[in-house]
Write a protein that binds this DNA or RNA. Structure first.
Lengths: 252, 252
DNA sequence: TGCTGCCAACTGGTTCTACCAGTCTATCGA
DNA sequence: TCGATAGACTGGTAGAACCAGTTGGCAGCA
């Protein structure tokens, strides 16, 4: 009914604005940011807020700060970490960057079988128990949104079971990236989420410690759902091109 | 001879201290941080510096800040991104966290063949040219350190060639993680870096657009160097256990 | 008794001002 | 011409004052 009011802080606003200008190449690598005092004046905020934003840009390795000198923009493709992905997924018009989306899906596609395999080897009975419990919930779930939530939780448990902290943190970054298009994903994955047999089978293989079996089974499922997303992205791309072409035509 | 004096800013110091307390479970998930005013008093710094540090913790998803309420610690294993890896690699005594290191090597091992395969498909001639140029340099390189630099640059070019921004940013995170143990890596990889034939072959396969060949060749090489690292980590682990056991014995 | 509303004492959010500490450059003197 | 230096930038730090949410207790009313 009512939804919480999002009250973004001033420094968050400054951070977003600067970050967007950097990832959109509006501010190119090597260029210098205006001085803190100038920025605070231009944006109508305190120098404090600007400093907090720049500290965060520095942490994200989007800029380099030098005491006494100017703050310069870095090449985010070389320096930035996976935490930048969410802000790369959409362009300034709010359109999905199809190549970015494809990259993310591909990485998930590649990592998932390995995660399942490692979970089969290193996961304890507790992992298999949790997986079974989730599948049990999926069986009685009706709403696609609920099914999707459980499916993603299934993978989170597998990631946990793999005992690999690098997988875990990388998956966290991916999760943060597709959270904004959660509902869209529900539509894309509709059919694949119905394949409860695949989930059940995977849970069994993990319990049996069958590395190859789990990998194969995981690959089979994840390839399917990845293909569904790729197909959507292809359509989205064609649609976006057609729209932008129309816009050009109208402009003439 | 002389090395630059690291003049860490106050807020960096505060950030590091709080982050370390969180990743070492000294501050557990759900616990509350002292208020900004109290923290600034305890640490003997301005509230300004504390705020900058907390803003960064917030960005790293290590804490949750609520206007009017207390700032609480989050579970970094669930929330944090891959950028946290560097600070997980060492414990408080400066010892390598072997399981974290293994995780990172494993992820690199899994991603690398896929990256090589994608680079073979999506990389242009320019990618193959750059790879050849690097191998040419490797042939005349003598110092192991120089060889290692070139080998890692080789992989960076492959990641670029794959055209996958998610791979790119994930690799950036991994790179930042093993930068602190760069010299140690030189020792571990000594023999594998001599395998110039493997690099040359990979470059050729990428130029030919041979996806499966590039993947296979990359897997062959990366499995070898990964094994070398795993073996070192096993020894390191045994040594660390022996030392800690001795320490206990001495304490008796 | 139990609910409502308000107030006080916290919390983080924001803005100033003043000053410290590096870096760069133009200018002046040897 | 060269080099030292003064001044005008840059970011770094501190502190005070105030705004803005949250919480809990207390007074007052039903």
């Amino acid at each position: 009914m009512f939804q919480a009011i999002s009250k973004r802080s001033v420094s968050d606003e400054v951070f977003d604005q600067l970050r967007n200008r950097i990832v959109s190449r509006d501010l190119k690598a090597g260029e210098e940011l205006p001085s803190e005092r100038l920025l605070s004046e231009m944006l109508g905020v305190s120098r404090n807020a600007v400093r907090e934003a720049i500290k965060r840009l520095q942490q994200a390795r989007l800029v380099e700060v030098k005491h006494g000198g100017m703050t310069t923009v870095l090449d985010y493709r070389i320096e930035a970490g996976a935490d930048l992905l969410p802000s790369l997924l959409f362009d300034r018009q709010g359109q999905i960057q199809v190549d970015v989306a494809r990259s993310i899906v591909r990485m998930r596609q590649v990592l998932s079988p390995e995660i399942a395999g490692d979970a089969a080897v290193y996961g304890k009975a507790a992992t298999a128990d949790r997986l079974d419990a989730i599948v049990d919930e999926m069986v009685v779930a009706v709403a696609p949104a609920e099914l999707q939530r459980l499916a993603f939780e299934f993978w989170e448990v597998l990631v946990d079971g793999s005992g690999n902290i690098a997988y875990r943190l990388a998956f966290n970054s991916l999760r943060k990236t597709y959270e904004p298009i959660w509902d869209l994903l529900t539509q894309m994955l509709g059919r694949d989420l119905q394949k409860l047999g695949a989930f059940r089978k995977l849970a069994v293989l993990v319990r049996q410690g069958d590395r190859d079996g789990a990998m194969h089974s995981a690959r089979e499922y994840i390839d399917g759902s990845s293909t569904a997303i790729y197909q959507f992205l292809d359509l989205y791309e064609q649609h976006a091109q057609r729209v932008s072409k129309d816009a050009v035509t109208e402009g003439q």
